[in-house]
């Protein structure tokens, strides 16, 4: 073997026989520190495959003497986090929503927890910033269909709106004035112009004057004499700048003709007391809470 490779003249060291463009590799011994590190790595590797999961099998990898698993690690971390929060969660469970908001520590925790639940459960309809979209109310503003006090918000989230599965759900129904022929299309046009007028938008004043009478007869019972709305029945305020289904003439006519009735699920039974309280605290903190 030794005779196979030539010996380098200058250094007197045998070459490995590898050659690249005339450059030959000397077969120098490995540095001792390198060799020992290598042996130590082998020793470590043997210890490692004994102690930790290593060999793949038909039904999962070998368990290893230490019985370590990443899932167990995660479970442990999660339960530790739960344990760490258990005290404050118990306080939130026992406290009323108003007391939670009055206590800085509880409020901070509840708002943060509510924000994360909101992203998962509520953002689908209300938007990730709770900014809403036509048909789904913006929760940042100060216009509330069913009330903006903490306990009102909590009630709405817990029991939902027009959710048939919850007997305490908030519910109401606006008549389909056009579809059910309660008003003629001329009357609807007039009352729509009146609604535009009281919300300080451009309107045909002559039609609006006719519409005022129709409004008092047909709409004021729920929406109020001046269109200020009625939260007991979830009737929106009409003389303001906020529109659930847009405020242009066509949208208003459409809503009078055949109203859409928004539905929100009852979350109380799905998420539990603590989570809905946290959600209510978060919604209340968005800036429109009363």
């Amino acid at each position: 073997m030794a005779n196979l490779n030539e010996v380098d003249e200058l250094s007197g060291v045998e070459t490995t026989g590898h050659e690249w463009d005339g450059i030959k590799e000397l077969n120098n011994p490995l540095p001792r520190w390198w060799l020992w590190t290598f042996y130590l790595c082998i020793l470590f590797a043997i210890g490692y495959v004994i102690a930790y999961p290593a060999f793949p099998g038909l039904h999962g990898a070998s368990k290893g003497l230490l019985g370590w698993s990443s899932r167990a690690d995660i479970r442990q971390e999660l339960s530790a986090a739960e344990q760490a929060n258990s005290e404050i969660v118990a306080k939130i469970r026992a406290a009323k929503i108003t007391d939670i908001l009055a206590n800085e520590k509880l409020r901070t925790f509840a708002v943060a927890a509510g924000a994360s639940t909101f992203k998962v459960r509520c953002a689908t309809c209300h938007g990730s910033g709770a900014q809403g979209s036509p048909g789904f109310p913006n929760l940042n503003d100060n216009s509330w269909l069913w009330g903006g006090k903490p306990e009102d918000i909590l009630q709405t989230i817990t029991h939902g709106i027009r959710d048939a599965s919850d007997k305490d759900a908030r519910t109401s129904q606006m008549p389909a004035f056009g579809h059910d022929k309660l008003l003629t299309s001329d009357q609807i046009l007039a009352v729509a112009n009146y609604v535009r007028q009281i919300s300080k938008q451009d309107a045909d004043t002559a039609l609006a004057a006719t519409g005022a009478k129709i409004f008092t007869d047909n709409c004021a019972a729920c929406h109020g004499d001046k269109g200020e709305g009625k939260r007991e029945v979830g009737a929106p305020q009409l003389n303001d700048a906020i529109w659930l289904y847009k405020g242009d003439l066509n949208a208003i006519i459409q809503q009078i003709n055949n109203p859409r009735q928004g539905v929100m699920p009852a979350w109380g039974s799905r998420l539990g007391d603590v989570t809905v309280k946290e959600l209510a605290a978060y919604i209340h903190s968005l800036g429109g809470g009363e």
Binding site: G129, Q131, N138, N140, S143, Q237, A241
Partner: peptide, 17 residues
């Protein structure tokens, strides 16, 4: 605040956070 950048309130005033 970026989401929403601004909020229109009931009386038409504008709020930024």
């Amino acid at each position: 605040d970026r989401n929403p950048i601004s909020v229109k309130l009931s009386d038409g005033s504008i709020r930024n956070g």
